[in-house]
């Protein structure tokens, strides 16, 4: 067996995963808290006002990280789902299913904050342009994955059905990302570009990137917490759970 598969199988062992994730979660929360406090301080007290939008642009520090996360989590959910479908690795199925509510929350945050930002800048809370509409579709895809999963009782069948829907929805991601280039939209084009050329000074950009990293730690902590619960729930009658209870390690 190659080392990658060996690693997957080892972390895929429920008892080991349960122990490892339990150790990781407090650290993930701590890093998230430190980064968020620093990032928010920079965002509100250090970053300069925007020449055009004034103070309202500060909504960017939650809006953009949330929008990025909603897309990144969807990609990860589809990848976990595909791994679950092809190799039938249970922990991947659990990760896919546990990602959905977190991704849905970020999609909703992006929609709400964008809407609140839209009023003072654009003059409207909502328009049906390609960017806003495709982001709304992403939110409903998350709800669809969660709904389909909860509609099927047998947990592994439910996870596979949800993974299939997640895979189908992947087609929406390039649409969201490129909508501002492909069509005339009210939403402006891309500001932050990977590999330089971002249309923002560093004093504004750095807090944004810090918040983007912070939300990744939030996802990690929230995902592992949910995955542990799900694993424990599915395995409540299995030996490793009884052993953990006996050792008082649960």
């Amino acid at each position: 067996m190659n080392p990658v598969m060996k690693f997957i199988h080892k972390t895929g062992s429920p008892a080991y995963f349960y122990w490892l994730s339990g150790r990781m979660i407090p650290w993930l929360w701590a890093i998230f808290a430190v980064l968020t406090i620093w990032g928010m301080y920079q965002a509100f007290f250090v970053a300069p006002t925007d020449y055009q939008q004034g103070e309202s642009y500060r909504i960017i520090y939650i809006h953009v990280p949330a929008a990025w996360m909603s897309m990144m989590i969807y990609i990860l959910m589809a990848i976990f789902g595909a791994i679950g479908l092809i190799w039938r690795i249970r922990i991947a199925e659990i990760f896919a299913v546990s990602s959905a509510p977190i991704g849905a929350a970020f999609a909703l945050i992006a929609l709400i904050t964008g809407s609140i930002w839209g009023k003072p800048t654009w003059g409207t809370y909502w328009v049906w342009d390609a960017r806003l509409t495709s982001q709304l579709v992403l939110f409903f895809l998350y709800l669809g994955v969660m709904g389909l999963h909860s509609a099927i009782d047998e947990p592994r069948k439910a996870a596979r059905a949800a993974a299939l829907l997640a895979l189908v929805g992947v087609v929406n991601l390039p649409i969201i990302h490129f909508s501002v280039d492909w069509w005339n939209t009210l939403h402006q084009g891309t500001t932050v570009k990977i590999g330089g050329g971002s249309k923002m000074p560093n004093s504004m950009l750095i807090p944004l990137l810090v918040m983007a990293i912070a939300t990744k730690f939030y996802y990690g902590a929230a995902l592992l917490t949910r995955a542990r619960n799900r694993l424990l729930d599915q395995d409540r009658r299995r030996g490793w759970v009884a052993k953990k209870i006996k050792e008082d390690q649960l």
């Binding site: 309202s56 929350a105 945050i109 609140i116 902590a221 619960n229």
Partner: peptide, 24 residues
């Protein structure tokens, strides 16, 4: 004049993130 918009945006976001973190 933008302060209420910023407060509502951050308030809602923090509420949703807390909910998603604390419930599980």
């Amino acid at each position: 004049p933008h302060t209420p918009y910023i407060l509502v945006a951050y308030g809602t976001s923090i509420f949703i993130m807390l909910l998603i973190a604390v419930l599980p």
